[in-house]
């Protein structure tokens, strides 16, 4: 886990306290407030795995796996991420290569470059996003797709489809 409480990036660097000793508890604490979020900045590169109990946003480069089963993960527009992600919600705006297993929703914005596999309950994709990948959405068992009915008669302007062969 990377952080505790909602803090600015400068709060997260190890810094001397009033007694002059270096504090590093922000990196090590295991407790988190509900809205806690860690941001890995543009100029940070990480290689390795991360597990945690708060939201995480990557604006720098990250190679490795991320497990935030109850929290949200975001690859920001300047972020580059390669690896496997397990999270509650995932948002991709930067570059992502790997697999996402998401308990709720994956959001892919128009800035995203996505290569990989998505498993999620639902997905939202903005026009302009680049996706090369496989998408697997949770489907309720025995649920019938809502629009498999036969083609309806087209609205007036589109009627008269001509059959050529």
């Amino acid at each position: 886990m990377l952080g505790k409480g909602k803090k600015t990036e400068s709060d997260r660097t190890a810094s001397p306290d009033r007694s002059g000793e270096t504090k590093s508890t922000t990196f090590l604490s295991r407790s988190s407030t509900p809205d806690a979020k860690t941001v890995i900045g543009k100029h940070i590169a990480i290689e390795g795995s991360i597990r945690g109990d708060e939201d995480l946003q990557i604006e720098g480069a990250m190679k490795g796996n991320i497990e935030l089963p109850k929290h949200n993960f975001k690859v920001g527009s300047s972020g580059q991420m390669e690896g496997e992600i397990t999270a509650r919600n995932v948002s991709v705006s930067g570059e992502f290569k790997g697999n996402i297993k998401c308990h709720e929703k994956v959001e892919v914005t128009h800035e995203a470059d996505f290569y990989g596999e998505i498993k999620a309950k639902s997905i939202s994709v903005e026009d302009g996003a680049y996706i090369k990948g496989v998408i697997e959405l949770d489907r309720e068992p025995n649920r019938k797709p809502s629009d498999t009915r036969k083609p309806q008669t087209p609205a007036a302007p589109a009627t008269g489809d001509k059959k050529e062969s």
Binding site: I123, V125, I131, G133, V134, I135, E136, L137, R139, P145
Partner: peptide
């Protein structure tokens, strides 16, 4: 994506 992924086990996009 919703259309295809709602009908198929896996939907491939490129």
């Amino acid at each position: 994506i919703m259309f295809f992924a709602g009908r198929l086990q896996k939907h491939y996009v490129c």
